[in-house]
């Protein structure tokens, strides 16, 4: 079974994560790592391959060239190789542009299963799979919290606003997993050492057959018009536990007449 996993490098959470007020774009200069939710997708891909007894797990990404540093974590977990589409002309791609680039890169791989994480922590869109599935003309199931694959058919359980759905689809299919589906494994030392030697292809837009007019800002259909800081929560307090945290919480609750 050949499994492609779409993974994204994102800015680390914390005070350095920001949108550049000048360019109105995400500041991608700070510390970065692989989107945590994508680890669940990689884990599931590895399990599917292990259950099938053979196959290949390919990580597919659109991002800056230095994103390979983050993507290597997936190789260390056990993925076989990585394809990173990286091109100046792809900077600032929105959903329309990114889904087009990813779909073209995926077509070249002809996977049986395309896996996605549940959301990217920088955009929280949770919509990418639907757009990519549409472009690949494959069935899509999202938010999967239980997954079975047998005889070329997947059966998935997922939560909706009304309870749980059980959905079936034939392969090839696009699947987006919930973070509760599995517990991602930690890369072993051997895995980390071996990751550097695994194939890591950095491709340009033309390598994957994408015209520059359909990527980056040129291929995007949405814009940020202006930014403003949101209303804060007033006098919020943050403390580090030094053994007295429980007492400090109690004092706070007493002060607010909540206990």
């Amino acid at each position: 079974m050949k499994i492609a996993v779409c993974v994204k490098e994102v800015p680390d959470p914390g005070p350095n994560r920001r949108i550049d007020p000048g360019t109105l774009k995400m500041d991608r200069s700070g510390d970065r790592s692989l989107n945590a939710y994508d680890l669940n997708a990689i884990e599931e891909a590895l399990r599917l391959k292990e259950a099938a007894g053979d196959g290949e797990v390919v990580l597919v990404s659109l991002g800056q060239a230095k994103a390979l540093d983050s993507i290597r974590k997936g190789l260390a977990m056990g993925a076989d190789r990585a394809v990173l589409v990286s091109d100046e002309a792809a900077a600032g791609s929105d959903l329309v542009a990114t889904s087009h680039v990813l779909a073209e890169a995926l077509k070249a791989e002809s996977p049986d299963v395309v896996l996605f994480g549940q959301q990217a922590t920088d955009g929280d869109g949770a919509v990418m799979w639907a757009a990519v599935a549409e472009r690949l003309k494959m069935p899509v199931v999202s938010q999967i919290s239980e997954l079975e694959v047998s005889g070329g058919t997947i059966t998935a359980k997922r939560q909706t606003e009304f309870g749980y759905d059980r959905i079936q689809a034939p392969l090839p299919a696009v699947l987006a997993v919930a973070d509760s589906l599995n517990e991602p494994r930690y890369p072993s030392l051997k895995g980390i050492m071996g990751a550097k030697k695994k194939p890591q292809d950095v491709k340009s837009l033309s390598d994957v057959g994408v015209d520059a007019s359909r990527a980056g800002e040129a291929g995007s259909r949405t814009t940020v018009v202006s930014l403003s800081p949101p209303q804060g929560r007033g006098d919020s307090r943050k403390i580090e536990d030094d053994g007295s945290a429980a007492q400090q919480i109690l004092d706070f609750l007493v002060e607010r007449k909540l206990v």
């Binding site: 994560r17 920001r18 949108i19 259909r221 949405t222 814009t223 940020v224 202006s226 930014l227 403003s228």
Partner: peptide
């Protein structure tokens, strides 16, 4: 942590 006005092209 930030709010934005967004548009479409």
């Amino acid at each position: 942590t930030i709010s934005a006005d967004v548009g479409w092209t």
